[in-house]
Design a protein around this nucleic acid. Structure first.
Length: 644
RNA sequence: GCCACCCUAGCUCAGCUGGUAGAGCGACUGAUUCGUAAUCAGUAGGUCGCCGGUUCAAUCCCGGCGGGUGGCUCCA
């Protein structure tokens, strides 16, 4: 029998018989390791611990300590799910069942749909199978034989036809379950210690809505019950921060059935926050050399024909409105309007760059199923600007945009973000507009801007808009979720379609470069992100009510009002709670409204002209002079401090 | 748009296999004047999302519509 040499991660070598399995080697090292082994890496390739090694190799045993094994583990959990489903409902057809970011899913095809009760039954069955310690067995099959074997399973056949080589691997689990699968898997079901089924959803076969819709069961799995609980707690935490819930509790905004879905009503408190966001952005526009413009909400359809939207964006637009003279289109974008302003007069290179900024409200038709609170709506306001410039200026402009985006994030307390540079495919598909020179220039400018600002942007090929490359900035919020925010995009198409020009030094007309950028993206959506990021406890400068005066008895009502007046005069948003209620109740309610400062005033404060300051996060701060408190809160507001 | 689920008082939610509804909070009224997260008592409040069907009888069963939630798809 031939021998092979196995090299372990610590550099030690072992000579073993060919066909020895990773689990055997693990057992030789320690029974505990063998017990903990979930998968192996053989010459860098993922292996089952029970798959024989046939040649000299480096070997690494993967356990719960190796992040790579989590995917294997969850993939095995998906198989466990499918095996349970087949035991309960043998007529079910299997689709695919991969691990995903926070768990796994499996797609099924069956005539009747799963109910939440079924989910419970299935999960119970999974635990039964888990307890049986059924092995995941790897089987090699020829394509021909496989197609025969799976002749009843239409989805598997399709996959085998498309993906399988002449010989492919399958994994079995118990008597019924067999799956066309690359693997690897954990050795047996007893290794899967903590899992939970989460939800049922419709999902199209291969993600194409023209295909049959399958039933997808989502679940999650972790190495330990503790980690699973922590994950479920985090999901709970996210639910607590849900902007739809907080929006109602804090009376910030609403969506009215009578008015229509996807249309946002800002209530007084949300309105104040919105005003802060808008004021901040408009101030920044002016500080950074943008001009503020205002444009209509509708325009003749001809404008949209010229821009091309009437054609390529039709599916996202509201139906045109018929008037006397023509059809009018509610605007889905601001760009054509800004272009009209640019084109309204002749431009010299001396005028450039022209930066036209607007808080422009646009309307887009979104399919009903995708609407989501403030995040996905049918009418929203973009902090939209378009920059028209010469090739010499472009790099500076892009750098400024990116810096502006970073400053915006910082202003709202976002410390972490990711950037993505979306580029074209090199022109092979023909789906992109613009010349190779334009693409090279634009992608170069975006890349150099990132380099200059030390932004590590991930390049994503073939993800650009058809009209030009872009940088997208995604922020990371307080609980680690990512949100698409700012975007800086080149546009080669619109300047051409509208015949934009400027007169250069050579006295000839040239086409300007156009950059489209939005930093909040949508004010509604950004507001929603802020609500969740701060969990409703807005920084003082944004808080709808910044301080509330709480008189203890009605003897202090007048004093409380006088304090409120002083705060008002100082530009602080303050109210008084002079209801005939105990101070405990007033504090409780103010806390729940997440009002930053509560100023308790009783006889003691009144006599000495003080306020007893309570902060929503740091509780009782003791008595202070009114002037002292004013200075403190004003400092926070003026500096736009993100926490007090 | 598609699949599944949900819609009961202002809010959050109960309501067993069909016999037209209940709690807590809130609102209102009264009492209480009180020191850092809920004072007590009383009163009012619902065509059970809307329309239709089955039934002696529908909040409950069936169908349609509207809205929402989780996904899918889409997101130029």
């Amino acid at each position: 029998m031939s021998h092979i040499e196995i090299t372990l991660p610590d550099g030690s070598k072992q000579s073993v018989a060919a066909g020895t399995r990773p689990i055997d080697i693990a057992r030789g090292i320690s029974p505990r390791l063998a017990d903990a082994a979930l998968a192996a890496k053989v010459n860098g390739e993922m292996f089952d611990v029970t798959r024989p090694i046939e040649q000299d190799a480096t070997l690494q045993i993967l356990t719960a300590r190796d992040p790579e094994s989590l995917e294997v583990y969850r993939h095995s959990a998906a198989h466990l799910l499918a095996a349970a489903v087949l035991e309960l409902y043998p007529e079910t057809q299997l689709g695919i069942g991969p691990p995903i970011e926070n768990g796994f899913y499996y797609d099924f095809d069956r005539p009747t749909s799963f109910t939440p009760d079924d989910l419970e039954k299935i999960e119970k069955k999974m635990w039964e199978i888990q307890a049986r310690a059924l092995p995941y067995e790897r089987v090699l099959t020829s394509k021909e034989e496989g197609l025969k074997k799976y002749s009843e399973a239409w989805m598997k056949c399709q996959l085998i036809e498309e993906k399988a080589g002449e010989v492919f691997t399958e994994y079995t689990l118990g008597p019924r379950f067999i799956d066309f699968c690359r693997g690897p898997h954990v050795p047996d079901t007893s290794k899967i210690k903590a899992f939970k089924l989460l939800s049922i959803a419709g999902a199209y076969w291969k993600g194409d809505e023209h295909n049959k819709q399958l039933q997808r069961i989502y679940g999650t799995a972790f190495f330990s019950a503790k980690e699973l609980d922590a994950y479920l707690k985090q999901v709970e935490e996210a639910k607590k921060r849900d902007h739809r819930k907080l929006g109602k509790e804090l009376d910030l905004f609403s969506i009215q059935e009578l008015a229509g879905p996807g249309l946002i009503f800002f209530h007084p408190k949300g309105g104040i926050i919105r005003k802060q966001l808008e004021d901040w952005m408009r101030d920044q526009y002016l500080k950074r050399g943008y001009s503020l413009v205002y444009t209509p909400h509708v325009a003749r359809i001809d404008l949209w024909k010229t821009s091309g939207h009437a054609n390529f964006y039709a599916a996202n637009m509201f139906t045109p409105i018929k008037l006397d003279d023509a059809d009018y289109q509610l605007k889905p974008m601001n760009c054509p309007f800004h272009i009209l302003i640019y084109a309204d007069r002749q431009r010299s290179y001396r005028d450039l760059p022209v930066r036209l900024g607007e808080l422009g409200t646009v309307y887009r038709y979104e399919r009903s199923g995708v609407l989501n609170g403030l995040f996905r709506v049918r009418g929203f306001t973009q902090d939209d600007a378009h920059i028209f410039c010469t090739p010499d200026q472009i790099e500076n402009e892009v750098v400024d945009c990116l810096q502006f985006a970073i400053d915006t994030l910082a202003a709202y307390g976002f410390e972490k973000y990711d950037a993505e540079l979306s580029t074209w495919d090199g022109g092979t598909s023909g789906k992109y507009d613009g010349t190779p020179e334009q693409w090279a220039m634009a992608e170069g400018a975006l890349q150099r801007a990132c380099d200059k600002l030390k932004v590590a942007a991930k390049t994503i090929p073939d993800e650009a808009a058809f009209y030009g490359p872009k940088i997208d900035v995604k922020l990371v919020d307080a609980i680690g979720r990512k949100w698409q925010l700012s975007t800086v995009q080149f546009d080669f198409t619109l300047p051409r379609r509208f015949g934009l020009e400027y007169i250069a030094e050579d006295g000839k007309a040239h086409q300007p470069l156009m950059v489209h950028r939005a930093l909040y993206g949508s004010i509604e959506r950004f507001f929603g992100i802020l609500i969740e990021h701060y969990a409703g406890a807005f920084p003082v400068w944004l808080a709808p009510i910044q301080a509330i005066v709480l008189p203890i008895t009605d003897r202090q009502t007048e004093y409380a009002r006088a304090i409120q007046k002083q705060l008002d005069d100082a530009g602080i948003r303050a109210t008084v709670d002079d209801r005939n209620e105990k101070v405990n109740l007033k504090i409780r309610e103010a806390q729940m409204q997440k009002i930053p400062y509560m100023l308790v005033v009783g006889d003691r404060e009144q006599e000495n002209g003080l306020v007893a300051v309570r902060n929503r996060k740091h509780a009782d701060q003791g008595a202070k002079s009114i002037a002292g408190f004013l200075a403190e809160i004003k400092a926070l507001i003026d500096s736009k401090a993100v926490s007090e």
